[in-house]
């Protein structure tokens, strides 16, 4: 193969690769900002948001950052609640087409009682729940800022 033909083959191959990459990135960017088909296969529709919630999340015109503080290694049944809250936040994030950004911050049981109130002082929306069990103390605090 002559060097001219080789160069042409190399540039054609590079062009093909850039084209494939460009199309894929474009498709992903487009679908990220528009509602896409979403099927909830759970028996009771556990992760299906109410129509109003979906409409509200989809109509946000600015970014909403949600910082959620979760105590690590919670014992059952509190860990199921923690997982459910995480999942629901993810569903809101998906329904908002990228406008709701969820950040989860793990806290140890010892530090959670100290750190969570600090986060709440900075937030506009405050919600905290303390759950006491015989063997452990658990705190879940949400801090939401726009």
């Amino acid at each position: 193969m002559s060097s001219k033909v080789q160069k042409r083959a190399a540039s054609e191959s590079l062009l093909f690769l850039s084209l494939v990459g460009g199309i894929l990135v474009l498709l992903n960017v487009l679908i990220a900002y528009f509602p896409s088909p979403r099927v909830d296969l759970t028996q009771n529709g556990l992760f299906s948001l109410a129509e109003g919630s979906e409409r509200l999340a989809a109509s946000l015109d600015d970014r909403l950052a949600v910082t959620a503080y979760f105590t690590e290694n919670l014992p059952p049944p509190f860990n199921a609640t923690e997982r459910h809250v995480r999942d629901l936040l993810s569903e809101y994030s998906a329904a908002s087409n990228g406008q709701i950004i969820v950040k989860s911050i793990p806290t140890t049981r010892r530090s959670s009682r100290r750190r969570a109130p600090m986060a709440c002082n900075r937030s506009r929306i405050r919600r905290s729940r303390k759950t006491r069990s015989r063997s452990s103390k658990a705190t879940v605090a949400w801090s939401c800022t726009t």
């Binding site: 191959s13 590079l14 093909f16 690769l17 494939v20 990459g21 894929l24 990135v25 498709l27 992903n28 679908i31 990220a32 896409s36 088909p37 979403r38 099927v39 909830d40 296969l41 759970t42 556990l46 992760f47 999942d87 569903e91 998906a94």
Partner: peptide, 26 residues
């Protein structure tokens, strides 16, 4: 894994697969 299939997730994995295969082809 929690039971929700979203076209965005499917498209993401499909895109990574196709692009990696295209790089291997090149």
């Amino acid at each position: 894994a929690r039971g929700v299939v979203d076209l965005r997730d499917v498209l993401f994995f499909f895109s990574v697969t196709v692009f990696a295969l295209a790089l291997a082809f090149r």
